[in-house]
Design a binder for these strands. Structure first.
Length: 105
DNA sequence: CCGATGACCAAAC
DNA sequence: TGTTTGGCCATCG
């Protein structure tokens, strides 16, 4: 919570409904910084705020392997599946079905 | 206190 | 059309 940008990211991630996922680039774009996708992940890893569903934020391909440092392997997937998010056979989130649209809620 | 790195993405060559 | 480099903010060392 040291920066205002950080706050913006949290606000956007917080408005992602259960059963939907958002990409780092999407969140960054909504925050007004299209090239600040890295900061989003960094902020999530550094903050880990319980009010911010970091597990609903995935990379552009729907992969969550990069989160193994913060989330144990399979933990994030279990949370998303519990919320109704569908996964592909390759272990990535089905963005075609569960990608969150910023225009809805 | 300063330098380097990082849960990434998109534009440019 | 594919590959490479740049960039943004925060956190770690």
């Amino acid at each position: 919570m040291s920066g205002q940008v950080f706050r913006v990211f949290c606000d956007i991630v917080r408005r992602v409904p259960a059963g939907k996922v958002a990409t780092y680039g999407q969140v960054a774009r909504l925050a007004g910084m299209p090239r600040c996708a890295r900061t989003v992940g960094c902020a999530m890893a550094g903050c880990q705020d319980p009010a911010v569903p970091c597990h609903r934020v995935v990379d552009r391909f729907g992969g969550t392997k990069a989160c193994f440092d913060t989330f144990a392997p399979g933990t994030q997937r279990a949370l998303l599946e519990a919320e109704g998010v569908t996964f592909r056979p390759d272990g990535t989130v089905d963005l075609e079905t569960c990608l969150w649209s910023p225009f809805e809620r």
